[in-house]
């Protein structure tokens, strides 16, 4: 199912039956694209899947954040977005932190990378994250690469199928943040990075899974279900 590339202002469909979704707007009977991307019409809902643009924080998104500041009762984090995120002291661990007795830098200090989740984004784009929860933690080894945030959905694949496949053939441990940062550890990282760059380059094309599988089968070896 080849999707059509649309440019801002371009009319995608006409008719009051359709509903304008993300990346579109209504002008009279027409639904027009608001961004450069792929037009996606599902029943009545019309969307444009972006091909570029910065990461905009959304509630419940898993992200990889980097600590840029430690204050008295919270951390400031860079989430590769126009907006910085904040993490309150109570969101770091399940244990009680007595601010009178210990400093927050004991837990996370400037430069640390964290796998965390966005818990709140308000209308002024104040972003709050948490490091409490399954899979959320400080990153202590491996490496982080950055990709264009708009390509993340393809790197994850439907029901994380693409991630599973990469893990299976390269044996890496991997975490994909919605903000375009990917953590890799162990296994054949070289191949994993190569494949990720390939997905990034071809994110807008069809049959991506097959293309990637071909590369993985040729250059990787099966490590069993990851």
């Amino acid at each position: 199912m080849a999707k059509k590339i649309v440019t801002p202002g371009e009319t995608i469909v006409e008719g009051m039956d359709y509903l304008p979704g993300d990346g579109t707007y209504r002008s009279g009977p027409e639904i027009r694209a608001e961004i450069l991307g792929l037009a996606d019409i599902r029943d009545r809902l019309v969307k444009v899947i972006p091909l570029s643009g910065r990461y905009m924080p959304k509630r419940d998104d898993p992200v990889i954040a980097i600590v840029t500041g430690v204050r008295y009762n919270m951390w400031e984090l860079d989430i590769n977005s126009p907006y910085d995120a904040m993490m309150l002291a109570g969101e770091a661990t399940d244990r009680f932190i007595d601010l009178r007795k210990e400093k927050l830098s004991k837990y996370f200090s400037v430069g640390d990378a964290l796998i965390c989740k966005i818990i709140r984004v308000d209308e002024t784009m104040s972003v709050f994250v948490t490091a409490k929860g399954p899979g959320l933690r400080k990153i202590t080894d491996g490496k982080i690469i950055e990709v264009e945030p708009s390509k993340i959905p393809r790197i994850i694949g439907k029901n994380a199928s693409m991630i599973k496949m990469i893990k299976e053939y390269t044996g890496v441990k991997m975490f994909v943040g919605q903000n375009g940062r990917i953590w890799l550890d162990g296994g054949n990282q070289e191949l994993a990075v190569k494949v990720i760059r390939e997905i990034e380059k071809k994110a807008h094309t069809d049959g991506l899974t097959d293309t990637i599988k071909e590369i993985l089968e040729k250059e990787g070896e099966k490590h069993g279900e990851a």
């Binding site: 440019t7 801002p8 202002g9 990346g23 707007y25 002008s27 027009r32 608001e34 961004i35 450069l36 991307g37 972006p50 091909l51 570029s52 643009g53 910065r54 708009s150």
Partner: peptide
Amino acid sequence: LAHAGIPMRSM
């Protein structure tokens, strides 16, 4: 601007 993925009503 369009290439940067910035939303706009029109070119």
